[in-house]
Simulated assay, not measured.
Amino acid sequence: MTRTPARMADGRELFYFDDPATAESIGERVPPADTRDLPTVQTGSTMRYDVLTGEWVTVAAHRMDRTFLPPADHCPLCPTRPGREPSEIPAAEYDVVVFENRFPSFARSPSVEVPPEVDGNPLWPQRPAVGRCEVVCFTSDHDAAFAHLPTERVLTVLDAWADRTAELSAMPGIEQVFPFENRGLEIGVTLQHPHGQIYAYPFVTPRTSQLLTQASEHRRRTGRDLLQDVLDSERAAGTRVVLDGTRWTAFVPAAARWPVEAHLVPHRAVPDFAALDDEERAELAELYPDLLRRLERFFDTADGPDTLSVDPRPPYIAGWHQAPVRTGRDLTRLHLQLFSLRRAPGKLKYLAGSESGVGAWIVDTTPERIAQRLRDAAR
């Protein structure tokens, strides 16, 4: 993998990540200029503290006007080629590209000044949402999907995630880096080109905070690592294991919440992508797409092809949880949480009163059945 930095017309950073074969064939990449006349990005995101939950809520009103499902010939993530208007990526061809989001929820220099408290009341602290949001384009092919990328390209994406994790973690004020992919209209995706995002948060997110609390209590009580104990127990039981490699295991968690959910966990306690060794990356580049392909076939194995959805491939969220930059790095490790909102062909799992209102989850199937169907979806 080779990395080439560039600048966009409005000053945002952009990085080209080339597969080894591409780098060998083209030599040194010379990034073309971004010829668009773009105004400076204006962000007004703020964070308000919810005293009832102890969580920060980000208010990003400027995102209301972001690009929404443009036609393919106006896709801002496709390469800039003759006969079409310039996109966010000036090059006519690329392998993997990462750039600063034009409509970020968090920014390094928010264009807003806010008083330290809402209504001058110390009950509600607030501050600018200082962080960073990046877009990761997995391929220049508009109609591709991560599950079907060649292994060489998956390795380039992994290298890009590692590169960005290390660089974002070194930025002042960043507490957690979260790479993720939202896929499918039902998830709320606004651009259909295969891409993901990376959020660099100025706080430790609620789910991670909960995990650190549980892991800390487990260590105090047993002296052991919670995620290691979970991994060892899932592998020993075997009933929920989907893929068991030399360095990674994919399993459906014993208390899975979603209609389809799987975790992909490294056997070694590595905090983030930057800490993976070559062997771990090589196996991950094989197992991760395999897991995604099983998810694509999940609903075909028992219910027949999904012909009712606007997109036959199931919607999913693939979130790569990494250890926080400073807090509790010895209590957790890098791991994937992959889940889908679809519970049956053409039917979604809605978070109704119990889940949305009080956070008490009720699921319609068993984790063991989910795991068996994912195993059956091998091909």
Rank of each mutant, 00 (worst) to 15 (best):
H148M: 04
G238R: 08
R375L: 07
R293L: 10
R268V: 11
R207A: 11
E113V: 11
E85P: 03
Q372P: 02
A170E: 05
L14T: 06
Q214L: 15
G44R: 13
L292I: 12
G304P: 09
P202I: 11
F203V: 14
R102T: 03
G188H: 07
W161E: 00
V358I: 01
P20A: 15
E85H: 05
L212Q: 09
V59T: 11
R369S: 14
R326M: 09
D278S: 12
A237D: 12
S25E: 15
H62E: 11
G328N: 05
E55L: 00
L287A: 09
H193R: 12
D143F: 03
T213G: 08
R66V: 08
L292E: 09
L38M: 12
H62S: 05
R48S: 00
S309R: 03
L14F: 05
L149N: 06
A352F: 02
E368V: 13
G44C: 08
A91T: 04
R132W: 15
F99L: 14
E167Q: 10
V157M: 08
A162T: 02
R48C: 01
C133P: 03
P20Y: 11
V230M: 04
T58E: 04
A129M: 07
A21F: 00
V136P: 08
A262L: 09
H263M: 10
F103M: 11
P206K: 03
Q42V: 13
A274N: 12
I174N: 07
A250I: 01
V114T: 13
Q322I: 04
Y201G: 03
Y199S: 12
H335P: 11
V265L: 05
T151F: 00
S233Q: 14
P31W: 08
L38R: 15
E234R: 02
L284D: 04
D232H: 04
P150K: 06
P206F: 09
R84G: 02
V363I: 02
A371S: 10
T67W: 03
E217V: 11
S340M: 03
P289G: 06
R333M: 14
V157W: 02
M8T: 09
V230G: 00
F103P: 00
R127S: 03
R342P: 08
A166N: 09
G188C: 06
L338K: 01
T366V: 01
P345K: 00
A170Y: 02
L226G: 04
R63D: 14
D10C: 07
